[in-house]
Structure formats: structure tokens, C-alpha cells
Simulated assay, not measured.
Amino acid sequence: MSNDQRLLQEAVSQFLAAEAKLDVIQRAVEGGDDLLAPMRMGLSELGLNALLIPEDEGGLGLGFFEVALIQQMLGRFVVPIDMSGNVLAALVFRRMRDTAARSAWLRKLAAGEAVFGLALSTPAAARRGASGVQSRGEALHGSVPFAQLPVGATHLLVVDEAGCSWVADIASEGLLMTPLETIDRTRSFASLTLEGIVAERIVTEPGGGDLAGELLAFIRILIAADTLGAAERMIEAAVQYSLERKQFGVPIASFQAVKHMCAEMAARVEPCKALLWHAAFVAANGMPEGPVMACLAKSHLSDVGRFVARTSTEVHGGMGFTDALGLHLWFKRIGMNRQLFGGPEFLRTEAARMQGWTS
């Protein structure tokens, strides 16, 4: 990372360390979403909504690599704020052919006037059953069984089965939403049914490549970054607990078995940083290996994250399985990330197919 990128990540980390206290997060996921208002405002002032917006449109003019670094911090502090919809929307709007519409949407994102949920229905998203979204004229029909729907969402970014991108108002007539209860209560999901809702098709500049495939790569890298941040925090929690918890009059950190558990977690996580950074870099720069690296980064971090979540909980002993320490928030977030947009086995199969190793 460059010095500017380090400073950016440190600034977000310091803000969240002060504002994203565990008790605030726990109360927020129990129904106190109003407690997150100061955090949302602070992150907005840091430029969270304007990361990918060009400077002449009121944004910071940063790239996707910086976005991944910030997502790592959101996972580290298990922040109940989902920025992935706005990130993908910004990436789509930046390619719009209509310059006036592009400017209008980007300015709305930068000002926080539009909050996007995600409804991707491409086959590579590993959807369940015979679901999907089809377009008929300017109307969308079909269903998305698992859509990301952040609190306060005003719009949906929809990708239909043909790979076309659409923007739909969350209040559109014919849009039916059924909230889903998952193990991860720090983010919101819903099942969507689209019964002829009117939407705006995003027409991009010609020669832009497979936009739908790139969006999948971007969201997978963001999820991998989130898992990396959560795993790092769980290791730190295990080490800190092992130094404080005593048995037979000495800290359990002095026991060889506990030392080995913590060392194994660190040894598995450390190489993931380079893997994630490389995946984010090639995706940000539109390199051909971007989709493959996204699959490999997410699949590997899914496995490493699961190992860290389990091992860190074991270091905490019986207390680790209760909600007294809040460890379950990171545990469940990592578990949810593992399945979003394809589990490890699915993604490795995808990577093999992309490289021509399987049909």
C-alpha cells in the first residue's frame, strides 16, 4: 500500500475504534438502528459515499483498491452498515453513456441522497432454484431470492439474466419484498419478487466488456476484504483473552497448545493480505485475471475465515460460545460471507471454468 492508502485506512480505523463500540453494535443489531446515526454521519464525512465518485462530481476520485481497504475495516469492527450497493452503483454509473444522467446519479450518491441495495440475478451469482430477472421493454419480471437490502435503501441495482443493469426505485409498484432472517444480524437481506416494475436501464459506453461479470468480481472481493478484517479482529481478541485468562495461576497464553492455535491463525491470515490486494488491484485496473482472482481470493478467505472463527472461539473456551463477549457477531459475519455470491467449492469451479480447465 502507498502512504496515502495507509493513512486512509488508519483514519477509518481510528474513527470506528472510537464510534463502533461493541455495546453500540450489540444494541443496534437488537433493534436500535438509531444508534448508528452518528456512525453513518461520521463515515459520510470521511467520504464513504463519495469514494468512487470523480472529483468534478463532488467525490473523492479514489479507486476500487481503496474501497476494498475500507471494507476490510468495516469487517474488522463488524459495522452494521452495508456500502456494497453504493459501490457497485457508482461503478455502473461511471460507465453510463448519457453524461447528464451519469452526473446526476453520481452527485446523488456523493451527497448520500441515494442508497442502493443489490439484486443480482446472473447464473454466476449462485442463485437458488429457477429464479432470475427478465426484462420486457422497460419492465422487470422475476424474482431474486437473496438480495442485499441495507437499512434506508432508496433504490435497487438490478442485473438481469441477460447481464443488463437497471435502477429501480425501492417504492416501485409491483416490487414485493420479504425480509429474510439470517445468522448475520449486522446486515439486511430480503427475497424480492418483481411483477412488472418500471425501471431505468443503464446504457453503458460501448466496448466496456462484461459489466455483469465485473460486478460479481467486485462484490466478491469486497466480501473477501470484509472476512479478512473480521478474521484479523478475532485473532487479536483470542490473543488478548489468552493473556488475561488464567489457569493454575498463569495466563493460558503460556500454554503451548494455545500458542500453537494463535500462531496457526496468524500464519494462515497473513498471506491473505497479499492475495486480497492483488485481486483488488487487478480488478480495479480492468485486467483479464480480475474475475479469476476474485473467485480465488473469496474462496480462500472463506476457508481461512472459518478456521479463524472456530479456533478463536475455542481459545475463549466456553465463554466464546456466549454473547457476553460479542465474538458471535464476527463468527456469524464470517459464516454469512462464506456463502454470499458463491461458496468456496462453487467459486473454485468457476475459476477453473474461466481458465479453460473444465467445461
Results as ranks from 00 to 15, higher is better:
G305H: 11
G213P: 14
G207F: 00
K246S: 03
N285H: 11
R201F: 05
G318N: 11
A217I: 03
M293G: 10
A283F: 03
V292Q: 10
V250A: 11
G249W: 03
E244I: 02
M287R: 14
P288R: 12
L215A: 02
E244C: 01
Y241R: 03
D210R: 01
W330M: 08
T311S: 13
N285I: 00
H278Y: 07
P206S: 00
G286D: 06
G229L: 02
E270S: 12
G286T: 00
A238W: 00
E236G: 11
G290F: 10
D210A: 00
V269W: 05
V239L: 07
C262L: 12
L301K: 13
R333W: 08
K259R: 15
S302P: 05
H328L: 13
H278C: 05
A238D: 08
A212E: 03
A257R: 13
G318K: 11
A225H: 01
V292C: 10
T204Y: 07
L275V: 02
C295M: 08
A294D: 07
F331I: 12
M319F: 10
V282S: 06
C272I: 08
P206A: 02
A324M: 15
V239R: 08
L276W: 07
E264R: 09
R201L: 01
Q247F: 13
L243Q: 10
H300N: 09
V282P: 10
V239F: 05
L325N: 09
R245L: 04
A212W: 06
G207R: 00
L211M: 08
M265W: 01
A238S: 11
M293P: 14
V203A: 06
G318L: 15
I252R: 01
S312K: 03
G318S: 14
E244L: 08
H278R: 05
L329H: 13
D210H: 00
H278A: 08
A324K: 15
D210W: 01
L296Q: 10
A266E: 15
G320P: 01
V292E: 13
I202M: 15
I223H: 14
R268N: 09
M261W: 10
A230M: 03
A217N: 01
M234N: 05
V304T: 09
K332H: 14
L215H: 04
V239E: 07
A257S: 13
A284P: 07
E264V: 09
A237C: 11
D303F: 04
W330L: 12
L327I: 09
L275G: 01
